[in-house]
């Protein structure tokens, strides 16, 4: 029952994108996310799609793996589209029934919003498809390091993230085992109303909690036995280093960022009228 959480799960191909510094990939993802909120022309969306396509090809990812992530938000996009379609009013009225109205501005805004969401998820999933959760955690730790000067416990946060990542597969496996065991005793988890279902989960949740406390206890002993202390004296084996691919990646995304800004603020939709003519 927990099989479909594979949103943007790491897909190893060993490509140059996979080997990039996770800090750079995080930074570029943030730049991308910011940029896409400035996109408001179809031409801008075309550039965005082209950039994503290029990365997918370089990373040697199957199209399907990227589209799978989109599947997770299909309902949100559909719902938001419907609301937008009927709520946004302006320009020519294309269709109306009683108080419901669809206008041409509404259509454009809806299409753009849907494109933005879908491309956003594609872009974000590229990060998780090419970067292991551990690398993401390490990269994040490194990027938020300056926050320790304003008394943010960066090290503790990093340790918690790292342990959480480490135990997700373990707890996942354990949950499935307990579910199987209770099912074997005739428990059912997919019948009845909401309350009945929540109650049916108790035979799973209680052992899961009890076992997790036991695990936490043992882990604490194991960490103590290996001299864990959250002090400044800790050293780190891994140091992250930027390579050629990271600089090239940065240039690519920076160029994309500039292109989006130019399209929006300098050309102001000229490209759209050039390409699509009277349609927009």
């Amino acid at each position: 029952m927990f099989k479909d959480v594979a949103f943007g799960q790491y897909y190893p191909t060993g490509s140059v994108v996979h080997r990039m510094d996770p800090r750079m990939k995080l930074l570029l993802t943030i730049m991308f996310v910011v940029a896409i909120f400035f996109v408001n022309t179809y031409f801008g969306f075309m550039i965005t799609a082209a950039v994503l396509l290029a990365i997918i090809l370089i990373a040697r990812l199957p199209m399907l793996s990227v589209l799978k992530s989109v599947r997770a938000i299909v309902f949100i996009v559909l719902f938001a589209s419907l609301v937008n379609l009927f709520m946004i009013k302006g320009g020519e009225v294309l269709w109306s029934w009683k108080s419901l109205q669809i206008t041409d501005q509404g259509v454009h805004t809806t299409i753009k919003m849907a494109l933005r969401l879908v491309l956003l998820i594609c872009g974000a999933s590229l990060l998780t498809l090419t970067t292991t959760p551990v690398e993401v955690a390490d990269g994040t730790e490194s990027l938020i390091k300056p926050l320790k000067y304003i008394k943010v416990p960066v090290h503790d946060i990093a340790m918690i993230m790292s342990i959480a990542l480490r135990f997700i597969p373990t707890l996942f496996e354990e949950t499935n085992k307990i579910i199987a065991a209770q099912k074997a005793r005739g428990a059912s988890f997919d019948t009845g109303g909401l309350i009945a279902r929540a109650k049916a989960m108790l035979p799973v949740l209680i052992p899961l909690f009890v076992n997790s406390f036991r695990r936490a206890d043992e882990l604490a002993f194991a960490m103590d036995a290996r001299c864990y202390n959250a002090t400044e004296n800790r050293t780190k084996m891994k140091v992250m280093k930027l390579g050629a691919a990271d600089y090239v990646g940065f240039l690519l995304i920076a160029a994309y960022f500039v292109a989006i800004m130019l399209d929006r603020y300098y050309f102001g939709g000229v490209m759209d009228s050039l390409i699509f003519g009277g349609l927009v």
């Binding site: 074997a184 035979p203 052992p207």
Partner: peptide
Amino acid sequence: RFTVGMVFQYPEYQLF
């Protein structure tokens, strides 16, 4: 499921 009783590994971890 009632015909086939299944005792998994470490079954005590399923007591609730």
